[in-house]
């Protein structure tokens, strides 16, 4: 039930994000979700893509430092308090959330990407609380 996220290190140069996305486009890879975390010095671009291995290779070939991390794609009820309910469940179980970002998708359901410090524990708690989690293959193909 885990999704593999690709992340790349960027020095804070605006143009580098565009370079990374065009490398992926040239390799025929679709970006399903994207989030940039940055400081005054550097940034980390996190990506969910249609083909993880191909994307990793294409980016490495172009000299990027590439990391792979397990994240979890969680369905969030598209109504007020939907995300809050999930966060409370996790907080109660003392599951630490490193970061969250939205999955880009035009449909009636909202999907959020969660990065936990202990992914297996988090998955167990989410499933116990009947919160829907997507399979990697489904997410890559969406």
């Amino acid at each position: 039930m885990k999704v593999i996220q690709i992340s790349i290190f960027l020095e804070n140069t605006g143009g580098r994000i565009a370079e990374a996305t065009s490398i992926l486009a040239d390799a025929g890879i679709n970006i399903r979700a994207m989030s940039l975390a940055d400081t005054t010095d550097f940034g980390v671009l996190r990506l969910i893509v249609s083909d993880v291995d191909k994307a990793e290779k294409a980016l490495k070939d172009q000299g990027f430092a590439v990391g792979k991390t397990n994240v979890v794609a969680v369905q969030v009820e598209d109504k007020p308090g939907g995300l809050n309910r999930i966060l409370q469940v996790l907080a109660k179980a003392e599951i630490n959330v490193e970061y969250i970002y939205a999955f880009l998708r035009d449909s009636d359901q909202a999907i959020m990407i969660f990065r936990f410090d202990n992914t297996d524990n988090a998955l167990k708690i989410l499933q116990e609380n009947k919160i829907k989690v997507f399979k990697g293959e489904d997410i890559y193909a969406m």
């Binding site: 940055d38 400081t39 980390v44 990391g67 490193e98 970061y99």
Partner: peptide, 18 residues
């Protein structure tokens, strides 16, 4: 230079390293 093994998707780990 950030090497493969050094890299983390978590900003705070990179900042801690610096």
């Amino acid at each position: 230079e950030v090497s493969e093994s050094l890299f983390s998707d978590e900003i705070k780990l990179l900042q801690t390293l610096e």
